[in-house]
Write a protein that binds this DNA or RNA. Structure first.
Lengths: 217, 217
DNA sequence: GCGAAGCTCGGGAAATTTTCCCAACGAAGC
DNA sequence: GCTTCGTTGGGAAAATTTCCCGAGCTTCGC
């Protein structure tokens, strides 16, 4: 309800890098009708700043140290259901995007886009629409083509367990002992998991496992 | 020795995020005597842009996809020993900083600093001095106090770069192409890194790289 | 009850990679 | 000048990966 009626769009900038914030601020204010009314560099401050300034749009990088931006989005939306949060992130993994919208974001734009894309997205979000940059849409679209929601749905129980242990750093032999299987079987699963998920290296498998919440760090 | 005598400091901006570049450009050009004469979003373009514009200072983010900024720094310095490269990164691990200076950087500032720090560093570097933001100096200082620094200190520049790419999910072949090495050499490094760090699987290597801030997610 | 479908478990064999050891070169240090 | 160290790769045996295949077990629908 507060939403500055003075004209223009008021913005809260959340990013943990001061120089980056400063840069955004200039880019955005170069548009005549944008006003950056506050900045924050962490989730807690973002919440406080939102409460006191009630900006039209929150532009937020969700990869911040400590409590992530997702938490901040949830907090803000909890207290003010009409809040518009536009996520502005380096990452475009499907899981992250879903999590962001799940937490209540109104838009998602990656930093690999031209400034015009961000600006357009802010206007859309301010109008109450949802916005998403092309690359993000692409990732989500590809992902939704798999009949399963998550990549993990293509995998059986054993496969998931073995993927988890692989990602945790266990050797083939350790896994074989842990699960009472022959090394050959573990190797076969290892290969099967890679082909099913389309990952080409073990490092990619680790990242996949982390993304899917199978393991942490 | 082209160095624009027209006055002011000419700058080449290297960062893989367009919006971020745009932001820096505005922040920097807001200083009357800075001129951003070119931009690049990858190592190869950075090298080409350097050749054709011969800027006074290169401001570079070293965490880019593919061949990293370290490669770019080496290339640039190889052809023009007087080149001044100021690294502008999100990360401040001692090993990365050392690798950057080892590759020929003249300065290192993290993105968690205020714009004034970056600006001051650019002026220092342009003057031929070396520059480093306080947080980077702090990390290096602390590191030099502990005889047992990070695991990464046992690794050479090449090893660190290859570890980074391995952890990012690159295949042996991709790394060989990126760094212009034979696959055999990359395999040898891969093995060497595992023995030096004591990691037994690639998954453990990924976790190590993440812990050391070499890569994210 | 019976066949199809889908996991789970492993053998086999060729292709690749990993694992070590070694050599050569240049740069840095003593 | 000599040694050490990082970088680059060859060689060759050992190990792993990559596919393909079959067999046992369950589940499911008909």
């Amino acid at each position: 309800m507060p939403a500055s009626q003075t004209s223009g769009i008021s913005i809260l900038l959340v990013d943990d890098h001061p120089v980056v914030r400063q840069g955004y601020r200039r880019v955005l204010e170069h548009q005549g009708d944008f006003r950056v009314v506050a900045e924050a560099d962490n989730a807690a401050d973002a919440y406080r700043a939102y409460k006191s300034h009630a900006p039209d749009v929150v532009v937020m990088d969700i990869s911040m140290p400590g409590a992530s931006g997702l938490e901040a989005i949830r907090n803000i939306r909890q207290r003010s259901a009409g809040a518009r949060v536009l996520v502005f992130s380096m990452h475009s993994e499907a899981a992250l995007v879903k999590a962001a919208f799940g937490a209540g974001a109104s838009g998602y734009v990656t930093k690999s886009n031209e400034p015009t894309v961000l600006i357009a997205a802010i206007r859309s979000v301010a109008r109450g629409e949802h916005a998403m940059s092309d690359d993000v849409a692409h990732v989500l679209a590809m992902e939704s083509l798999t009949p399963s929601g998550s990549v993990l749905d293509q995998l059986g129980e054993r496969e998931i367990e073995i993927l988890r242990q692989l990602a945790a750093g266990s050797t083939t032999e350790q896994i074989a002992v842990n699960l009472n299987l022959s090394m050959k079987t573990v190797q076969n699963y290892h290969y099967l998991i890679k082909t099913k998920t389309g990952m080409r290296t073990d490092a990619q498998l680790v990242r996949l496992a982390v993304e899917c919440g199978l393991t942490s760090l």
